[in-house]
């Protein structure tokens, strides 16, 4: 597989959220507003890329029987670093997504890619895979967040979209997250089927 394809596959063909169904917890929890979704997406890109690189680098050193605890330590380390950096240098962002950052530790996209890809490939491919998967995550969560925030709060990045319209409040609530996620996934499947024909 060419390097470019390695990067691209995370965006459509193997989108972590919409195809692999990984990382659904943060997707559902932070897609209530674009601000949170983009913050979450960007931090996942950062953590995922670096964790893939590091895990790919240490793959020869880590015995396979204890690989999971080792990966967890690496991921937890990266997440804590990102958390502290954001809290220190972007306090407003930290106020909005501080809680979710800590949840990245258990975001299964990261452990999933470490186990399924980074542990079997060289650092360059692992980095591209992490970057692509992270961007795929960002795109998916942004689509869901846009639908939810516009319909549910009549806002986009906190700005009113249609002045004077009563938004559909449930879209902001957890039920709306599940509903939107299911519909977006369905639309992706329909499009993919069309393409295959």
């Amino acid at each position: 597989m060419s390097l470019f394809k390695e990067f691209l596959k995370g965006i459509w063909e193997k989108n972590p959220v919409l195809v692999l169904s990984l990382g659904l917890c943060p997707t559902l929890a932070t897609s209530g507003s674009m601000k949170n979704a983009v913050g979450m997406g960007l931090s996942v890109i950062a953590v995922l890329t670096f964790s893939n690189i590091i895990i790919s680098l240490i793959k020869g050193f880590v015995p396979s029987k204890i690989r999971i605890p080792c990966y967890i330590i690496v991921i937890a380390f990266l997440v804590t670093v990102v958390d502290m950096l954001i809290a220190g240098f972007a306090p407003e962002l930290s106020k909005a997504i501080g809680l979710f950052i800590k949840l990245i530790v258990v975001n299964c996209i990261i452990l999933g890619r470490a186990e399924a890809f980074a542990a079997k490939n060289n650092p360059l491919r692992a980095a591209l895979d992490g970057l692509g998967m992270g961007i795929g995550f960002l795109i998916a969560i942004s689509i869901i967040a846009t639908i939810r925030e516009v319909l549910g709060a009549n806002k986009w990045f906190g700005l009113t979209v249609f002045p004077g319209w009563d938004p559909i409040g449930i879209m902001i609530l957890p039920a709306g997250a599940l509903l939107t996620f299911g519909l977006v996934m369905a639309v992706r499947n329909v499009l993919a089927q069309r393409r295959a024909k």
């Binding site: 009563d166 938004p167 559909i168 409040g169 449930i170 879209m171 609530l173 039920a175």
Partner: peptide
Amino acid sequence: AFLLASFPKH
């Protein structure tokens, strides 16, 4: 239920 959660006022 959908309407009640969405438009509590109305």
